[in-house]
């Protein structure tokens, strides 16, 4: 295997890990509540702006030398802030729309437009997050092969986040309840699980995960009000082709889409590469309409 191939596989894994990070929360919310959450990208944007605000606070109040810390402190904070926004929006709007996919699609799309315009009014366009010094530059593996640290960090972060989510779902009481409600809401309610509370918590966790993704993306992209729109379609692709609400499906399809996109991009132009990926997913869904890991979730009812 040549250096070029390694580079492409690395690029694919990197893109895939970003997609997984964005799609995890979306997949959980979609699987549990049947909400097609078009505003998921905006929770990402909230995470990114949290990172920006923390950075500005550091610049204003703390010594220069601490600036690199800002990003790492932002990671948990963006989870919390995005989660809180998720909670507020769930309480105000989403909870009236469970199991009504079309209305939820329109309502969350409206929320996303409102959030974008609010971000634009509050922050304007004067935003840039400076990556910490430890994460700029890259690891020189061989002549002509450099693995940028920021991308390696995002991969590691994705692995860490995934392990946490997996642990939460498999090993904790809360996770078991969430899975129970995902599988059969009425039955769960009968055995005494407060499904409303579970809905709320899940939406919060899903939004918080988007916040972490947004924070991570400040390392490679920019912070603009409509940044979420760039990722929302791709992350839906990951969710749909992976199987709704399935964590493993999310990982496999995220990495698959990442690597295939990069392979197509190398051999064709980026524009056609994207189109080819879409065509492949459409064909794939003809044969496996419920994705890689089909499951009987509420969304199937």
């Amino acid at each position: 295997m040549g250096i070029d191939q390694i580079q492409y596989i690395f690029s694919g894994l990197s893109l895939g890990s970003i997609l997984i990070l964005v799609a995890l929360g979306l997949s959980i919310i979609y699987g549990l509540a049947g909400i097609i959450n078009m505003s998921h990208g905006e929770f990402m944007m909230i995470g990114a702006y949290t990172t920006y605000c923390i950075q500005q606070l550091f610049i204003l109040y703390l010594p220069q030398a601490w600036l690199d810390m800002a990003f790492f402190i932002s990671l948990p904070l963006s989870f919390m802030v995005a989660g809180l926004f998720g909670l507020i929006i769930e309480r105000l709007i989403i909870r009236h729309l469970y199991s009504r996919p079309l209305e939820s699609l329109l309502a969350t799309w409206g929320i996303s437009l409102i959030l974008i315009q609010i971000a634009r009014n509050l922050f304007g366009d004067l935003t840039a997050v400076k990556a910490p010094a430890v994460l700029s530059g890259g690891l020189q593996i061989a002549e002509g092969l450099m693995l940028p640290y920021n991308r390696l960090f995002i991969m590691a972060l994705t692995v860490a986040v995934f392990i946490c989510v997996y642990f939460l779902f498999q090993k904790t009481r809360l996770g078991i309840k969430i899975r129970a409600v995902t599988q059969n809401r009425n039955m769960s309610a009968c055995v005494g699980i407060s499904t409303k509370k579970i809905d709320m918590i899940t939406f919060m966790i899903g939004s918080g995960l988007a916040g972490i993704a947004g924070c991570a993306i400040t390392l490679i992209g920019n912070v603009v009000p409509n940044m979420g729109q760039t990722y929302i379609v791709d992350s839906f692709l990951v969710v749909v082709s992976g199987g709704v609400g399935k964590l493993a499906g999310c990982v496999v399809s995220g990495l698959g889409i990442g690597i295939f996109s990069k392979i197509f991009e190398v051999n064709f132009e980026a524009v056609y590469g994207k189109a080819l990926v879409l065509i492949f997913i459409i064909i794939f869904l003809q044969y496996r309409p419920k994705g890689l890991f089909p499951d009987k979730g509420r969304a199937d009812e």
């Binding site: 070029d4 492409y8 490679i220 132009e269 980026a270």
Partner: peptide, 20 residues
């Protein structure tokens, strides 16, 4: 000559092509 879609965020492969 190469083009990317609007809002393209992932320039890994293109930059490695430029590098070569």
């Amino acid at each position: 000559e190469e083009y990317t879609p609007f809002n393209h965020q992932d320039y890994q492969t293109i930059v490695s092509k430029i590098k070569r």
